[in-house]
Design a protein around this nucleic acid. Structure first.
Ligand SMILES: [Mn+2]
Ligand SMILES: [Mn+2]
Length: 537
DNA sequence: ACCTTGCACGCAAAC
DNA sequence: CCGGCCCTAG
DNA sequence: GTTTGCGTGCAACTAGGGCCG
């Protein structure tokens, strides 16, 4: 468990085969698991990489860590590539790079403003413009092909081909679009550790599942561009209606529907928005429907949908909404203390700390990360338990279903066994302490290691009774979907086992539904919590 | 989850 | 000449 | 005064170098 010497050191060259090995590992993984879902061409391209010489693999590995798709030939010299010329020739011969230009706008950016002015003999008046303006001037005046050729005469360039395949491979290897090849580097620098994960079957069982994911991603991308291209809205609506026809549609498509409906609600008309929201019940779809119906003065429809939510809320936020909509002051009311602001401040939460923390105590502004981190530590083996389809990729920081409704249900045997082991106070403390030691720095979606550096576990254990930690974590692990946000801003410790949770509200801020939901829970658990309302002087 | 997501603040308009 | 941004690297 | 909508900011690793304004 002791950290071996890291493979990488900042500012020191990586081993010659480092990037090459990473890519081999990733592409082998992709081919092993997904070859039958990729096109024959894409499979061939990945095999072209795996079959290439060391030099060519190393050069391509470097290209993939860079922005591209164009690269100046002069920037392709790497210590670990013995003959860049041969490597370039081989990658070209294997069809992975090209010397023909596509759109020139990405290429032209590689050249300095000065080089552009010289090459195109620009007049002094034009040279005074910004680089971006000069680029636009040139793009308007020359064809892409002309530009590519004339720029190539200044400095040779190459173009990486098959960008969408590299993107897809990244998605299949990491399981999300958020992670990129620098994940390897961060791990090997020792910045992050990753759990040894029990990988189950592939993330996508067939080509249809994969293409649904890709379609959802594309539709989502279009939704984000609606402001730019409003005429996309009807096409998006029919595409979504089509895609969501069978009821078991994935979460991403439902999010697309919510995005589109929200945009339509703001920019087009409530009627259409209503119809789009009807594609899903994923919150806040029903909430939005109630609000729209109310605005359209269809009061009975609004009322009965509100009742439907009350009968079976799909999230805590939805429940709070249904309880309070149209009835001010309803729902749970937490205790509130008020105070006038007496001095200047940057952050209202930090200011509140100076007012609330006594000399004998301490406090931090940590919001959700306190209870999330304690829960992540306390339930570590449950979170990383080997459950079917939970782990499909080597660098996950949580199981895919961590925030889903049936997370605990699917782990109930292990969960109750684990909790029996923690029922004794000193066992719980021992478990937390050991987990912090053993897992320090290991990626876990729930754990904020920075917080535990600021305030070490021992200090938390002095301030919080074990029974409180147990109760909070027991609650959160069962309600991660709803309660991963909304926890009060501040933790304040007045003395041993004497603490309080405080939500700070500035003059123009008020309690959000998720925050209200947490206050109700804290009240049920009989934990001290209040709103601290600061008013202007 | 970076062609994003999640979270929460601060302001202004509507009630 | 400096600050900010983008890119690169480990 | 309260509720709602909307825009905004921040954090997602860190440091250094070159270009640009
Ligand atoms: Mn807050
Ligand atoms: Mn607050």
């Amino acid at each position: 468990m002791a950290n071996a010497e890291p493979v990488l050191q900042p500012r020191q060259p990586a081993p010659a085969d480092y990037y090459q090995n990473n890519l081999q590992q990733a592409f082998s993984f992709v081919l092993e698991r997904y070859a039958d879902m990729l096109s024959a061409d894409d499979v061939d391209r990945l095999q072209q990489f795996l079959g290439a010489s060391a030099d060519a693999q190393r050069l391509l590995a470097r290209l993939l860590t860079r922005a591209g798709p164009y690269f100046l030939r002069s920037t392709l010299n790497y210590a670990e590539v013995s003959s860049p010329d041969d490597a370039v020739a081989e990658l070209h011969q294997r069809g992975l790079i090209s010397f023909q230009s596509g759109a020139a706008d990405r290429l032209i950016k590689l050249y300095t403003k000065n080089a552009l002015c010289e090459r195109f003999n620009l007049a002094a008046t034009i040279r005074k413009l910004t680089k971006q303006q000069i680029i636009e001037h040139l793009l308007g005046r020359y064809t892409d092909r002309q530009l590519a050729q004339r720029l190539g005469a200044v400095q040779a360039w190459v173009r990486l081909r098959h960008l969408s395949l590299w993107r897809l491979s990244r998605l299949l290897f990491f399981g999300s679009t958020s992670q990129d090849w620098s994940t390897f580097v961060r791990k090997d620098l020792g910045q992050i550790r990753y759990e040894e994960l029990p990988l189950s079957r592939p993330q996508y069982q067939d080509a249809a599942a994969l293409s649904e994911r890709l379609l959802a991603q594309h539709l989502q991308y279009l939704c984000y561009r609606l402001d730019e291209y409003p005429q996309l809205a009807p096409a998006l609506f029919s595409a979504l209606t089509e895609a969501m026809h069978d009821k078991s549609t994935g979460d991403r498509l439902q999010r697309c529907a919510l995005l589109l409906a929200h945009w339509v609600e703001r920019n087009l008309c409530p009627d259409l928005a209503l119809r789009i929201y009807e594609l899903t019940n994923k919150p806040p779809a029903r909430e939005r429907r109630v609000r729209i119906l109310q605005r359209l003065e269809q009061l009975e429809a609004a009322g009965s949908l509100r009742q439907e939510i009350l009968n079976a809320p799909l999230s805590a936020k939805e429940q709070v909404f249904a309880e309070r909509f149209g009835r001010r002051g309803a729902g749970f009311q937490p205790p509130v203390t008020e105070m006038r602001i007496r001095g200047p401040y940057d952050s209202i939460e930090e200011y509140a700390l100076t007012e609330l923390v006594p000399d004998s105590g301490w406090g931090v502004h940590c919001e959700n990360s306190l209870v999330r981190s304690l829960t992540g530590l306390l339930y570590w083996p449950v979170i990383f338990a080997d459950v079917e389809d939970a782990f499909t990729n080597p660098f996950q920081s949580a199981p895919h279903d961590l925030f889903s409704e049936d997370f605990c249900q699917r782990r109930r045997v292990l969960l109750s066994k684990h909790e029996r082991g923690l029922s004794d106070d000193s066992e719980l403390v021992k478990f937390l302490t050991r987990t912090v030691q053993a897992k320090n720095g290991t990626a876990n979606r729930l754990v904020n290691w920075t917080l535990l550096q600021t305030v070490p576990l021992e200090q938390w254990l002095e301030a919080l009774p074990v029974k409180v930690i147990r109760a909070l974590c027991q609650f959160l692990i069962r309600n991660l979907g709803d309660y991963r946000s909304g926890f009060p801003d501040l933790f304040i410790c007045y003395g041993p086992d004497d603490f309080e949770f405080v939500e700070v509200k500035g003059p123009n801020d008020q309690l959000q539904p998720q925050q209200r939901a947490w206050f109700r829970v804290l009240d049920e658990l009989k934990l001290p919590a209040r709103v601290f309302k600061l008013k202007p002087r």
